[in-house]
Design a protein around this nucleic acid. Structure first.
Lengths: 232, 232
DNA sequence: CGGTTAATTGATGTGGGTCAAAAGCAGTGG
DNA sequence: CCACTGCTTTTGACCCACATCAATTAACCG
């Protein structure tokens, strides 16, 4: 079985569709590919620790973060099924971020050297990688703008909208209820606030009838209102 | 004259060395390249406005920013001689940012279609582009962490260090005095603070004997102290 | 010389942090 | 079945880093 490098079903997807349905195996498959299933909360990748593989999240949720010296961490991206851990990881050995599983996940690793080699010749693959870099870059720039310029309400609304769209792009959503495995602590680490303030803002959103977030599902009651708050 | 796509003298440089010394011309040169000199403060690029060219800053300073709806702007990168406006601009027609000249600048534009075509075959060029994407991506991730997790002093110290290193990489620095054309307003827009608070923090750094910033030059008196404050 | 733009400084306000307690809610094990 | 533990969320009281508003000074320039 070879990596499905031409799959472009999801906007920023890499080979998600194939791997979401592929049976995960706990071990390596030659030198080309590795599969693994990992429990919720486990460390997947560590900042600066080099690896010869490029990883794709096949199932479950995960997140990338940067550790800061005072003990805090900044989550800079949530990973959904089909996502490359980082599009740039194809070009660098040691990631500039760490990653943790949010739920139980299945991941797949490709030998970087081989992938890179193919990148030189395969235009299709080049284009997929370029698209992935693009969407990564745009998301990063938006997050920078949000963190630098926006209030707590705007930050949280932005995050919810951003995730809603990504979830909706990859699966059918019924009755505006989105699967949402983040704890408030994760939201806090992603938007640069404290968990207690996140709780306050979410309560506020709830009593204003905008969104209700509980038990791992995000229910969007007044999407236009959320967009009014959370757009750049 | 063809673009010097193989020049890798500066870490994140594109073809800076050649263009810094090349005589700028005010008009196009066939369909492949365009040169222009632009005055300080002028708009160079506008968010969402598509163009068929990929731009490189040949001389002077500029900055990229994202406009937010409430009137503020977030500067997400300062551009030094030799920098691509954005490494991702090779792959997208309309930039997700705007750009302005900080000083008088000289810029050079390459036809995107042609550059992209060459990218498919030319491994050297691919590698240069990949390196540029990498350093862009790492810088963005660091800025996200700084904005989300750090205090005003840390943010400003980080920005100063980051720029110091980039300046030092591209030119000789005498007596720890760095050319520094930013106004306090630019610093404020880059680190998500108000200009008056930037002024206060800089005064503090000055009276503590860490840095002195005046008249377009940044004098670093106690570099270790600055690093202690501004590292991630 | 007045007019403009940048930097500084002071007084006061506030969004969000910190600290702490309580409440809800899985597990877990007797 | 209930007590115990640990984790998450909520709520309240208080605090502080930074914003806001406003006045002053300095530099530059036609």
């Amino acid at each position: 079985m070879s990596p499905c490098v031409t799959c472009t079903r999801r906007e920023s997807g890499f080979c998600g569709a194939a791997f979401r349905t592929a049976p995960p195996r706990p071990s390596t498959n030659g030198d080309q590919q590795k599969f693994a299933a990992v429990g919720a909360g486990k460390q997947l990748l560590t900042q600066g620790k080099s690896s010869d593989y490029v990883f794709v999240l096949c199932a479950g949720w995960a997140f990338r973060y940067i550790q800061v010296s005072d003990g805090g961490r900044q989550i800079d991206r949530f990973l959904l099924p089909g996502d490359l851990f980082s599009s740039l990881s194809i070009f660098e050995e040691a990631p500039h971020f760490s990653a943790k599983a949010l739920t139980t996940v299945q991941i797949c690793g490709f030998a970087r050297a081989e992938l890179r080699e193919r990148c030189f010749d395969d235009r299709e693959l080049q284009s997929v990688v370029a698209q992935s870099c693009l969407s990564d870059g745009r998301d990063a720039a938006q997050l920078i703008a949000i963190l630098g310029q926006c209030s707590a309400e705007q930050r949280i609304a932005y995050l919810l909208l951003h995730l809603m769209r990504r979830i909706a792009a990859s699966q059918v959503v019924r009755e505006r209820r989105y699967p949402f495995p983040l704890r408030q602590q994760h939201i806090a680490d992603a938007v640069g606030l404290t968990p207690v303030h996140v709780s306050r803002v979410l309560s506020l959103f709830r009593e204003r009838g905008i969104v209700a977030l509980a038990d791992g599902v995000l229910e969007v009651i007044d999407a236009p209102a959320l967009e009014r708050i959370g757009q750049l």
